[in-house]
Nucleic acid binder design. Structure first.
Lengths: 149, 149
DNA sequence: TGTTAGTTGGTAAAGATTACCATTTGCTGG
DNA sequence: CCAGCAAATGGTAATCTTTACCAACTAACA
C-alpha cells in the first residue's frame, strides 16, 4: 500500500477513535501502520518485531490486544488461513487468495471476473454478510517441483 | 455425511493405500472415519477425543501425523480459518463458507450460483489451481445481538 | 512365520495465545 | 496547564497447540 493510502487510512482510524471515544495511543497507530505497510499476510510476531523498532518497550501482549481491537473496528481482517497461527490483512478492498495446500503460501489475486458475485448467496440463518473472498486451492510452483506425483 | 458415503470414502482410502504402498493402520482408518462423521470443522483435539473412544491408547502425536498424511493424500482438507488452531474438512466436493468476524463460527454454504466460477481466475506464477471456496465474511446472529452497532 | 520399512506412543521442547494485575497514558473538565 | 478518571499498556505466568525425537510396535510381503 502506498504512503498516501496509508496516511488516509491512519486519518480514518483517528477519526474513528474520536467518534467512538477510544483513546488514540501511539501503539495503536504504529501497529496499524505496520500492517498497512506490508503486502504479505503478517503474523502477530512479525508485527511485533517490526513495531518494536519504533517502540522498543512494546509488549507482545499489546500487539495481540491491539490487533484484536483493530479487527473489531473494521480496520483490519484476520486472514482465513490453513495454518496454525493468526495472520492479518490490512487491505480492506475486495481481493482473493491463492493458497498452496502443501506449504500454505498465500498470494493475493485481483480479478475483475470475481468482483461481482452476489452477497445474497451467503445469506443464511440470520448471518449478515459484508463481503467475500475467493480462496483458490492448489499447489505452488516450488512444491510441485519438490513433491512430484 | 451419511453412512453409505463414509463407507465409500473409506474404501477409496484403502484402495489408495494399496496403490501407493502405504500401510493401512487402524489409526489411519479410524481418524479418517471420525472426520467424515462430523459436519462441523473439527480441530485436532476434537478428533483426538472422539477417536480415543475406539482406540484408548491413541497418541495425540499420531492424530497430528495422520491428519497431515490424509491431507497430502487428498482425503481431507485443512479449512481456511481465521482462528489460531488448525481445522479439517472431510467434505471434498465444492462448497463454501460463512465466517463470523467476531466469534469465528464457520458454517457451510451450498450455492448453485457459485458452483461454476472459472478456475482460470486463479492461475498465477506457476500455481496450479485445483479448486476454490468462497468465504463470506460477516457477523452471525448471536454476535450481532450481543455486540450491537 | 521372519524380515523390514514405515508407523505409532510418549515425553520433552518449542511456539502461540490468553489471563492477570500493577503501572502508565490519553482524555476531559476546570 | 493540571488533576482525576477511565482505559490501555507491560510483563510475567499459565495455558493451549504443535513439533521433535526415539524406542517399541505393526502391516505387508516373501
Amino acid at each position: 500500500m502506498n504512503e498516501r493510502e496509508i496516511e488516509q487510512r491512519l486519518e480514518g482510524f483517528e477519526e474513528l477513535c474520536r467518534t467512538k471515544g477510544l483513546p488514540l495511543t501511539v501503539q495503536r497507530r504504529d501497529i496499524l501502520r505496520a500492517v498497512l505497510q506490508r503486502d504479505d499476510h503478517p503474523s502477530v510476531d512479525q508485527i511485533y518485531e517490526s513495531v518494536r523498532e519504533r517502540i522498543p518497550g512494546l509488549s507482545r501482549t499489546t500487539v495481540y490486544r491491539v490487533l484484536e481491537t483493530l479487527c473489531h473496528l473494521g480496520m483490519l481482517r484476520r486472514v482465513h488461513h490453513p495454518g496454525a497461527t493468526v495472520r492479518f490483512d490490512g487491505r480492506m478492498t475486495r481481493h482473493h487468495h491463492l493458497v498452496c495446500r502443501i506449504c500454505h503460501a498465500m498470494l493475493d489475486v485481483e480479478s475483475r471476473k470475481l468482483a461481482q458475485l452476489e452477497l445474497s448467496s451467503g445469506q443464511r440463518q440470520g448471518f449478515v454478510v459484508e463481503d467475500y473472498t475467493v480462496h483458490f486451492h492448489g499447489v505452488c510452483e516450488e512444491c510441485r517441483q519438490r513433491n512430484p506425483n
